[in-house]
Amino acid sequence: MEITKRQELSEIARKIRIGIVESTNAAGCGHPGGSLSIADVLAWLYFGGEMNINPNDPAWADRDRLVLSKGHAAPALYSTLALRGFFPVEDLKTLRKPDSHLQGHPNMHKTPGVDMSTGSLGQGISAACGMALSAKLDNKDYRVYAIVGDGESQEGEVWEAAMFASHFKLDNLCAVIDLNGLQIDGKVTDVMDIAPMDKKFAAFGWNVFECDAHDLDSVEKAFTAAREAKGAPSVILSHSVKGKGVSFMENNAGWHGKATNAKEFEQAMAELRGEA
């Protein structure tokens, strides 16, 4: 991609990360680790020209859809949607408060731009299959994206969905598996190994692509290939770093589900502002 575009998108990814850290810090809880690992992919989807959406008309029937199957990464989605103009960026500070439209996990009826309520792992990818099938039934050409955790991929339902999507030749469906290598109890390889994901998805009849989740050129390449692949659903195995962008959160399972204290917040923000 052009240098200016890459710079623009990485600047947006940086702002998404700032929103993640600020919102979880304000809430005093939440899931920064798995949010930070998908910031660049979300920047590509919502700002790179990948998704056909309209912030002024979030319910537009022909829009592309995104299902955050790993719903605990809501802060990343909220931050992205706010920056894209679906609602004011100031709202991020209300995360996880009773009267906020920004609930702990995504709610499609409360937050403009959220296409599916999620939070219980494994279910989002099934809903994405339903949306993609619906487009086929209606002869519409919108695309559906599902972001799935690597730990989440241990759920049997993910593989039921995988079977379904290829059976119905849902080539308008693109699943992104966020391979950050960690879940709550530790390393995915130690908890319950999911490898080899490329061979598993291939065996289920999917087109398999891989990318470096933090290299926008690599991300663009994978999504473009996925869009061009016809006749079967596509999966992008997105190799990421949990906590990416905040040094002390990177590759640390301890940052799955907790917010920064005052000192950690200052350090994280300094790093994200490029001051550290």
């Binding site: 809430a27 809880c29 939440g30 719903g71 996880r96 996990h105 709610n107 939070g119």
Partner: peptide, 8 residues
Amino acid sequence: VGEDGASH
């Protein structure tokens, strides 16, 4: 359960 919200 608190802040995780309705899904949990």
